[in-house]
């Protein structure tokens, strides 16, 4: 494991994102009990790890995160960056009282946010596609992940009396 190959714009972007994302996370009023917050932070961290080490590395190797295919500290910071996003998705789902009728536009907005963030990440060299992977395939991942996150949250709400 290395820190990074060259400290340039992708590292600066990842660190800046880390500061902004966690500042928002700590500033927004708390809505859930601590164990639910921790649960969705872990989900948010696990999803990019699962995808990156399954389709983003190894035999498929569809994309490269940061400077190289080697494991860098910046890669770990990139995954940590994602952790609050699952929380934000559920946070605003609850805050905006999203129902079955508003779920589709709500999720489409999040897909657009994901798309913009991925475009910026590509521009900043945080992600580089390879082996015929293109930008648009990520929409499938966003739709699947966001839908399962909400379904899981609804299941948690049914099972957990503290929410």
């Amino acid at each position: 494991m290395i820190l990074w190959e060259q400290f340039d714009r992708n590292e600066i972007f990842v660190i800046a994102m880390l500061i902004v994302v966690y500042a928002i996370f700590f500033l927004v009023p708390k809505l859930f009990p601590k164990h639910i917050t921790v649960l969705f932070l872990i989900i948010g961290f696990s999803i990019p790890v699962i995808f990156d080490f399954t389709i983003g590395g190894g035999m498929l190797n569809f994309y490269q995160i940061n400077d190289s295919n080697a494991y860098e500290l910046t890669d770990m910071l990139t995954y940590i960056n994602f952790a609050p996003f699952a929380y934000f998705y559920i946070y605003f789902y609850e805050r905006l009282a999203i129902k079955k009728t508003t779920f589709i536009p709500y999720t489409i907005i999040w897909v657009i946010i994901g798309f913009i963030l991925e475009a910026v990440s590509k521009f900043m060299n945080v992600i580089q596609y390879q082996n015929d992977y293109t930008f648009y395939y990520s929409v499938i991942i966003f739709l699947v992940v966001l839908t399962f996150t909400v379904l899981f949250y609804e299941l948690v709400k049914k099972k957990d009396p503290t929410i």
């Binding site: 164990h35 639910i36 921790v38 649960l39 872990i42 989900i43 696990s46 899981f152 299941l155 948690v156 099972k159 957990d160």
Partner: peptide
């Protein structure tokens, strides 16, 4: 284990 505990242990 409840649903949340199982999920956390599995994911970690």
């Amino acid at each position: 284990m409840n649903l949340m505990e199982s999920t956390v242990v599995f994911l970690v």
